[in-house]
Design a protein around this nucleic acid. Structure first.
Lengths: 347, 347
DNA sequence: CTGAAAGCGCTTACAG
DNA sequence: CTGAAAGCGCTTACAG
């Protein structure tokens, strides 16, 4: 039943024009009279003709595809947040008529994997790419930028990176931490600990810096015993870090701010195992407002970040840049705000 | 800094051979002496050359890209299951050296959206596609199959669809329902209701059929009042259906089997609002073993389905078929098994 | 074993 | 307003 592939030559013949004209119609050239246009369009419709995208790209058009690169060692598949990120990019790209090729980078240190990523760009499969989960300095991404590819990086600053083909989005973690500490201080807490995330990531660092600043602003002491260094932003990290804390003979803080909600879940799980209740015995605040936070027991008080909106903006900026339109904003800033639920109590 | 794009002509020149030979090396032709091969490869490495994929495709190679189409009206982004599905396909395709273009179909009835989907195939962006969430009979998918595209459909049977380019995966819902009913019967339940899912989907129908059969096998009566017809497979549907049941003056069942876990969550939420506890007042069994089911309160007893494995197999089959290798299995059957947790009690 | 040449299906200056 | 032609970067029979 397969219709033998029809091409522009066929369409031209059927419409009684040249391939040039067919192409002009497809590409909306203004110098085609309405009549001719209609005639050609009719044939195109009728024969269900869609121009071969490879031929178009080879002839100089864009692939209208962007790459979405998720750098995640572990269980990408388990996290709802990841899903939201993927879907946000897909849907917003789709609004601009772009497609997205999603790629997972399990290990940004693996040469083979990096080669695969580069290949995607050099093969011209995509017009640009968005990276999520990258370390502060990721050499292979820098190379791609040097090569002139349009690159969006989540959780980075522009600061000393003036390349016009770099787009970044950064989180206002400073503000988030200030809100968290202020809220806890307001509840009467002064013994406030923190669980750090991945310090190779910008958010890992800015959250910790934000925490220290916020504590100082509130006139509170940072107790080094309560600065818990997690490995990453996952549940397990929060769990491990609390286990370690409990195994030591130190005083406990009355409240802990976790690097994100997943980490907070892990921390709460560990606390439970030690018969410590949240918030009765210890207050916990997370970051992100993960889809589960609301349903968690206890419902998690957290600093909400609108990832969906961020990715929407990032996707738009990327596409704007790809299409060479002038792009004024190349740094997207994402604000955050406290969501009070049930994991903190007044003392 | 952007290296001006290097192409096969350049490589040929640098290696002192013809473009033909460069191409032969790239495509692993056997008739290239090791020496020549090394020489060319060295230059390729050195100049970071990757063949332009559009040119390759235009010249007759495959795009090495598959499409993943998710048909989902509502909140695709909220569901962890969806995420797992996406990631499974991406990772398994990646193992075969394929990329995946993910596309979301919000409304399979929308002509514009359907046109977009067809376009992806006709433009030759992809070598084949996998559809998840399709109705039993989806005309536009049938058209694509008629056109000869290699298509994988999740939750369909092959039965009277003998096309060689159709691959399906079906769930053994019959077995799942038998296990669910048997388990409940074993706990002493005889008043067992069911919440149906989307009856336009194969699983919607087979689950209901399976339920009826299983009840009969166990010598139990199906009470029509306890056959609750949900709209789809989402949380809200389970909620609505229970609200409706409670607003009627009918006897309640002692146990309910939900079309899937999300529906079960919704049902439990509604029951809670009516001060009915699970499992004390009513037992509930779900389907899927959603990532949340374990963490749910109460932890949900469910029929586990290994989606990840299914998609892995489907992806492999699709790619095998794309590469024209002989494909013996074109129908993947997925078994399921009861996972006992805390949402059912003995009566 | 290897090169010259045709061809894949488009787009777009160029000329009229 | 429109067609003939060159060109995009590959692959692969074909001929040697």
């Amino acid at each position: 039943m397969k219709k033998t592939d029809i091409n522009s030559t066929e369409i031209a013949k059927l419409a009684g024009v040249s391939r040039s004209t067919v192409s002009r119609v497809i590409n909306n050239y203004s110098n085609v009279p309405a009549e001719t246009r209609e005639k050609v369009l009719k044939v195109i419709q009728q024969y269900n003709y869609f121009p071969n995208v490879s031929a178009q790209v080879l002839a100089g058009k864009r692939a209208r595809t962007i790459g979405l690169f998720l750098i995640e060692q572990g269980n990408v598949s388990g996290d709802m947040l990841t899903n939201m990120l993927i879907v946000s990019v897909i849907e917003h790209a789709s609004e601009h008529g772009y497609y997205v090729l999603t790629h997972i980078i399990r290990d940004a240190k693996d040469t083979e994997m990096i080669k695969n990523v580069k290949e995607i760009f050099f093969q011209r499969r995509i017009d640009g790419g968005i990276f999520i989960g990258a370390a502060i300095h990721e050499p292979f991404i820098e190379e791609l930028i040097d090569e002139g590819f349009v690159i969006g990086i989540v959780d980075q600053t522009l600061s000393d990176h003036p390349e016009p083909n770099r787009i970044v989005s950064k989180f206002n973690n400073d503000s988030g931490m200030k809100q968290a500490v202020a809220y806890l201080a307001g509840l009467g807490h002064s013994k406030i600990g923190v669980i750090n995330g991945d310090m190779n990531r910008l958010s890992g660092q800015t959250k910790y810096e934000g925490y220290k600043t916020a504590m100082r602003m509130c006139g509170l002491q940072v107790n080094p015993n309560w600065v818990l260094n997690g490995d990453d932003f996952h549940e397990r990290s929060g769990y491990k870090v609390i286990q370690k804390l409990m195994s030591q003979e130190t005083d406990l803080p009355t409240a802990i701010i976790a690097a994100n909600d997943s980490v907070a879940f892990g921390a709460i799980r560990a606390l439970k195992e030690h018969k410590l209740r949240v918030p009765e015995d210890l207050s916990i605040i997370g970051f992100d407002d993960h889809a589960l936070s609301e349903k968690h027991h206890p419902a998690l008080t957290t600093i909400r970040v609108d990832f969906s909106d961020m990715l929407k903006r990032m996707t738009s900026c990327l596409i704007t840049k790809i299409e060479q339109k002038t792009l004024d904003i190349k740094e997207i800033t994402v604000d955050c705000s406290l969501v009070v639920r049930e994991s903190c109590r007044r003392i």
